[in-house]
């Protein structure tokens, strides 16, 4: 994945202002943006997905310009073809696991029917061990099952990159360890590039092929970033 980001955004909240100023280029398959809460990690991820519009700068993914303030380019989130895993998964509460996964495959004004057949959905139900839960509603699932459903929903559309917002923060520690291993294995198998944001050093150790430390809206110089033991081959 070629990711080229140079964005600036000023946010006002009451009398406080927050300056986000993020610039980096990467050809890594696994990028981890690491930083405390309130450092601008989520904003950066949202900017890549098109859910937050920067004031200045550009975002390019694999040579395609997703956003360029100067050139007036701002692709809608729908056109960016990225997968996004929300921190609390954002599963549609009125749709079953199967319908959630098939949601993005279905165009038009109607949701996929509960019994709608789809090979791609079946494949991902199988791949993420969700087949027996296909007809359950999100409210009936455990944390790990929810995350797997959200992952399947994001991956079924074959995104160019997978954006993960604190994917393990909502899980209890034991499960966190297991889901981390699962995601690690899945990413290696699929070779889908990912950008993961986290405040957990454990995530950095497992996923950080390239690590960017974000602090107060700025990327810290490389020497200040915690570098993991494993570097790209």
């Amino acid at each position: 994945m070629q990711l080229d980001i140079d964005i600036r955004k000023t946010l006002h909240s009451g009398k406080r202002t927050f300056q986000l100023q993020v610039r980096f280029q990467s050809v890594s398959q696994r990028i981890v943006i690491f930083g405390p809460s309130g450092s601008g990690k989520s904003l950066t991820l949202k900017a890549i997905a098109g859910l937050m519009r920067p004031d200045h700068g550009h975002i390019r993914l694999d040579g395609e310009t997703l956003f360029d303030a100067g050139a007036g380019i701002d692709l809608a989130p729908q056109a960016r073809k990225v997968g996004y895993l929300f921190q609390d998964y954002a599963l549609f509460p009125h749709l079953s696991v199967r319908q959630n996964i098939g949601f993005g495959l279905k165009r038009g004004w109607f949701n996929p029917r509960a019994a709608e057949k789809s090979e791609a959905v079946d494949y991902w139900l199988e791949a993420l061990h969700l087949s027996h839960l296909a007809h359950q509603m999100p409210g009936e699932l455990s944390g790990g099952q929810r995350q797997r459903t959200a992952l399947a929903r994001a991956l079924v559309a074959e995104p160019r990159a997978l954006l993960l917002d604190e994917p393990f923060a909502a899980l209890d520690p034991l499960l966190r360890q297991r889901m981390r291993e699962e995601l690690d294995e899945l990413q290696r198998r699929l070779q889908v590039p990912m950008v993961l944001i986290t405040h957990d050093p454990e995530d950095v150790a497992v996923f950080g092929e390239q690590v960017l430390a974000l602090h107060d809206g700025m990327i810290a110089p490389p020497e200040a970033s915690p570098q993991p033991g494993v570097l790209p081959a």
Partner: peptide, 8 residues
């Protein structure tokens, strides 16, 4: 937002 990113 999730639905937007999914292309709907």
């Amino acid at each position: 937002q999730a639905a937007r990113v999914l292309g709907v």
